[in-house]
Nucleic acid binder design. Structure first.
Lengths: 352, 352
DNA sequence: CTGAAAGCGCTAACAT
DNA sequence: ATGTTAGCGCTTTCAG
């Protein structure tokens, strides 16, 4: 009664081996492993012993195929090295584990085509939930494809979760966990305005990505509230990378636009801004105030430590998993907006 | 011929639905999907059409169960938010995708017990490779358990990969991808010594974790080479966290030990060191030289930018996947040590 | 409490 | 080139 040899020539201990060794039937072994059905103590002991002796582990695929339960959560993200995503991932992973799930992770490098391909792949895996993180494409075509996936997943008993990106529409079966992106931008811009800043540059509008657009809206609404007309030429489009912050700031400095504060769309961009300012001999915050967005750990290491908008990263990830998995329970909403708030550090002062 | 309804009440399009719709047999559908067998163009077209109309995706579990190939790579890491791990993860994910694999990610928070549990779980998943990243436990018991897993995975046709952690022994079937941890520490310590530093503190020895022990060895060997006796009281044990760097430096300063350089075991620790130095009014590098280890992106944002040891993170991850998956091909080694090198930035100067 | 029987969705011989 | 026949390893009725 040695283990069978599979087609590929590998020996793998199966439930049948265990059953033979323990002198019981296959379903009995299944029952003691699952532990959800009465089994005589003596029988259980025999089976457990056989399992240990044979070093048996269940085949997750056979289990998924026979039962209905996959016990995996898929997590799709632009780039796992970005602290913003990594911290959400952390929350997802923790909650998934708490709920007894394994976590599949895929990165898309921000490519909408790859995102679509990855979601398709997750559909094959029958994940209990597919969590999409980070600014999505605003192209109508991609939006439609995503709506399609939401329905496909729903019909398959799975769930699409949009985490930190806008909802797809009213009748789309999806869970959405947002953070108050626009509100955070509004608050930190107001902070600047209330201190007397009137010429505030906004760096990092990424066309077609909702995240930056919403942040810009917050910036604009704050200006309206304070009844100041923002100078549209102070809004610079670019990437979310450090180098963009550096370049854009150099330009701004060269142009002598009388800017007294810079709102970088992300902390990473702000790091580039600070660097350019230092290179240009501009004192922060004395000569120029700088704020960022995201509140990643890096902000504390910057010189000076950066005033920024805090996003509840972990909470976002945990909530996404929790809401998706418990969506059939009552009182579990399927759309929440988590709050953001300004974290005041040392990079802001009133204008001279 | 609508889709069947599974036990759990979900309708899912299966290969049978497609076959019926296209008016062919199930294996024919399988063949066009796999694309590894001759199928008449007309038949293929019919099948493709049915697939599109039914929005069919293959069930990865059924596929894994029937065939031998799982097409997943598991990746086990302490903490995905640590840049060190995130960058390796990036390499793993990229290479896995290149090789047509999905990536399972699990975090252990550095807990050896959880690591063991996770590896067990990966065994159930039948991943093609299980990649363990980061300093492992030096406890003999855990080592034995890991050796056991290496054999179990091997017998199951999978592969244990140790990435950035030491090999388990000569006859253990595992792939190991290391970086020259000791060599990097030797080089950067030599850099300091050659500039004339004689009292160099080493911060961040984490007992029981090989990574820090090897770095300490490099530090010591460099001293021997330069024929200087290192002061053992200058070696401080602690965590790899920022706070440890801060605290340890405050102590060092308070003790007035005539230290002229600090070797922090990681860049994160170095960030804490720099912070403490700034708080204490100590100029870097004029009054104190500081070096780190890892070369994470943060180092460039520190003030001053940190001289550190570069680790080829991406390469480590990619190599791990490549070597494991191609282990049966000739000329693919199963143990490599990737090089590290000192990156000189602005945190080091000769002692006063 | 336990066993026998059926089937999850797919692939891989074996036929034709 | 296509269909037929067997499973892969497990769970879940249904009997006893």
């Amino acid at each position: 009664m040695a283990q069978r040899v599979a087609r590929n020539g590998r020996k793998r201990t199966t439930i049948t081996d265990v059953a033979e060794r323990a002198g019981v039937s296959v379903p009995t072994v299944s029952r003691v492993v699952a532990g959800n059905y009465p089994v005589a103590a003596a029988t259980r002991a025999k089976v457990m012993r056989a399992i240990r002796e044979l070093d048996y582990v269940a085949n997750a695929h056979a289990r998924a195929l026979a039962g209905a339960t996959t016990k995996t959560v898929a997590f799709v993200v632009h780039d796992i090295t970005a602290p913003f995503f990594a911290h959400i991932a952390q929350g997802v992973e923790e909650q998934a584990r708490t709920e007894g799930r394994t976590c599949l992770v895929c990165t898309t490098q921000g490519d909408p085509a790859r995102e679509l391909a990855v979601v398709e792949q997750m559909r094959e895996q029958h994940a209990d939930a597919v969590i999409l993180v980070g600014g999505g494409s605003e192209l109508e075509e991609n939006r439609q494809r995503m709506i399609h996936f939401a329905h496909a997943l729903d019909e398959a008993g799975s769930r699409l979760v949009l985490c930190g990106r806008p909802a797809l529409g009213a009748n789309v079966p999806a869970t959405v966990v947002e953070y108050d992106n626009e509100g955070g931008a509004f608050a930190i811009t107001s902070h600047l305005l209330s201190l007397g800043h009137r010429r505030i540059a906004f760096l990092g509008l990424e066309e077609g990505f909702t995240t930056s657009v919403e942040r810009l809206h917050g910036y604009q609404r704050a200006h309206e509230t304070f009844r100041v007309d923002p100078d549209p030429t102070l809004v610079r489009a670019g990437s979310f990378f450090r180098s963009f912050g550096y370049e854009a700031t150099r330009e701004l400095l060269a142009e002598q636009r009388d800017v007294t504060a810079i709102f970088a769309a992300t902390d990473i961009v702000a790091a580039g801004v600070l660097h350019a300012l230092r290179d240009g001999g501009v004192q922060v915050p004395a000569d120029m105030s700088v704020v960022g967005y995201d509140d990643i750990p890096l902000t504390m290491e910057l010189t000076p430590p950066l005033t920024t908008v805090h996003i509840p990263h972990d909470e976002l990830g945990r909530t996404a998993v929790r809401m998706a998995l418990h969506r059939h329970e009552e009182a579990v909403p399927q759309h929440v907006v988590l709050g953001t708030h300004t974290v005041v550090r040392d990079s802001v002062a009133p204008p001279r």
